[in-house]
Design a protein around this nucleic acid. Structure first.
Lengths: 313, 313
DNA sequence: ATCGGCCACAACCAGCGGTTGTACCTCTAG
DNA sequence: CTAGAGGTACAACCGCTGGTTGTGGCCGAT
């Protein structure tokens, strides 16, 4: 069984017209073609959709039930096409990780502006994102930090939109597992494991600064086998802990007793910025920027830490 | 431009597999067929969806943006097909008029149980509805009243689920237009116009009883040109008023100054009942009945009027 | 440098889905 | 009652879409 959108369109036209002939005229085909399409659709679905009368065709109950689904199908097909049509396409935003803070911000935006069509993609790194912004392939990008000593191109604008506090993630047997909160100084001497942090990226620079300033021990070695494997290991290893953004949503392994512990004194935060092209005329981009600016106005930098090279607020 | 669902399915399979060969194997076609389908899709959309590499094909940014729409399209197509598949199909409910109280009840049900799939149809009269319930073409029907002296067949069960108060609808120049509420007795001598009430139906019987008991003047004559025409006429004719269910949502003609005036002493109510087949095993039907029973428990019959032949509460 | 894995292009062919022509049904008008 | 209008279905025909097999080219790994 496979629906054919042309046939579905024919069905909707016939249902609206109340007869095959008129639908055929609208669709610029012969009445016989419509008759055959509907017959094929009915054969495929295994139900009768119209009762043929002397002055047309009217929907059966099955046809009535099918009609809204058919309309929805055409709507979705239309949206799918416009999602890749250049010009008046949905706002296309790149987020850094599907469960991170950027996704949360976009969800919040969508709640406030449900009528603004959005497409979300995930690019590999900030260089790809900047190139995509310049080429117009995307309209905006959430990036955690700017690289030290490497300013953005002049035609790319950016603004800090969210500071996401870092939390410590430990297993139940970890020495700090019972703490309600932990100061950064207390972490000295504990092993912090951050696999998958690629040297040379903004993340590596961020943790390098954190280590240098507070004398932590961060092991960035080892390949990233995915967050599931990371969580399993942390849960089972009393001597290991890791960092994680406060808003990161996890597929929480049941019964592992993992703890999320806030960091204080100061609280290291991931600075999230929105990047876009100076000349991008997409109307929804202005709305997004205004929305995020309003949301960011409530941020409080007191007691937080970031490397000194990040984009200022 | 017209999407082909088979092609879209191929696109999703290729995106998931990361290469055309594996997608081809899953779809039981040759690699060349997949290649041609994707090429055709890209040509139709006017964008490149994959970048071909030596070890497969990975999504472009456009491809990433298109992917969720493609998945959605397949989901909707799947739902469309199941909506007419016998067995495990969505709960199919007949409502008496698209903007009436029954629709409101179903919306409330959908809010509480958003995961229960629903299809709503509108049948012509109670006889059609009963036949459809007995044949299994629909699972339940909202009907306003039972006919006097014509009990439901034994295999059809029903329960009162809502009493919808009647309101008076007048134009701005009507004698009662300024009233906050109107007693039924005050209506004596005023012309109430109810075009489109077909003699012999439950509606006709309802208004016959109302007339007989309170001495009103109801004109049921004339064809029904639709609610728009009715509203226009009522708005422009000082001597005319009509009845309307409290929950009826109207396409309110702007600037016509129409007034909805509650009726009291007593308040005539449309009794809405849910009808279903004794032996219908659809699990969602039990949920709907329980939901409506809970909602109906809060009804208060004090000060209301119905004909004495309606299904008791 | 060669091999393996993957995608694209070419040639071919079956069948889907269109067209025209016609039959049949039903309601209505004379 | 009959004839005509308006609507749908069936039959025959055919072009083109979309599959197949065969083959070549590209890229990365050994």
């Amino acid at each position: 069984m496979d629906l054919d959108l042309d046939t579905v369109r024919t069905f909707v036209a016939a249902a609206d017209a109340g007869q095959f002939q008129e639908a055929a005229a609208e669709l610029a085909v012969t009445q016989q073609a419509v008759s055959k399409r509907i017959a094929a659709l009915e054969r495929n679905l295994g139900v009768r959709l119209f009762t043929r009368t002397a002055r047309g065709a009217e929907l059966t109950i099955d046809g009535q039930a099918f009609l809204p689904h058919a309309r929805e199908l055409l709507r979705v097909a239309e949206r799918a096409v416009t999602s890749v049509r250049t010009g008046r396409r949905p706002l296309r935003v790149d987020v850094i990780a599907s469960r991170g803070a950027a996704t949360g911000l976009m969800r919040g935006f969508h709640r406030v502006y449900p009528d603004i069509e959005l497409d979300v993609v995930m690019l590999f790194d900030i260089d790809t994102a900047v190139a995509a912004i310049r080429s117009g392939a995307i309209d905006a990008s959430f990036r955690a930090v700017a690289m030290p000593g490497r300013p953005l191109p002049e035609d790319i604008e950016s603004v800090r939109v969210l500071d996401e506090p870092l939390q410590l993630l430990t297993g139940p047997a970890h020495a700090l597992a019972g703490a309600r909160s932990v100061t950064v100084a207390q972490l000295a001497g504990h092993r912090i494991w951050m696999p998958g942090v690629v040297p040379g990226t903004e993340w590596a620079a961020y943790y390098d600064d954190l280590v240098a300033e507070f004398g932590l021990t961060i092991e960035a070695t080892g390949p990233n086998f995915g967050s599931d494997a990371l969580l399993d290991t942390v849960a089972d290893t009393p001597a290991l802990a890791t960092f994680m953004g406060e808003q990161m949503r996890l597929v929480w392994p049941a019964g592992h007793g993992l703890r999320r512990i806030p960091l204080t004194d100061p609280t290291p935060v991931y600075p999230h910025s929105l990047l876009w092209h100076r000349d991008n005329p997409h109307p929804a981009l202005a709305t997004l920027r205004a929305h995020l600016a309003a949301a960011a106005a409530g941020l409080d930098a007191a007691g937080t830490w970031t490397p000194n090279w990040v984009t200022p607020r």
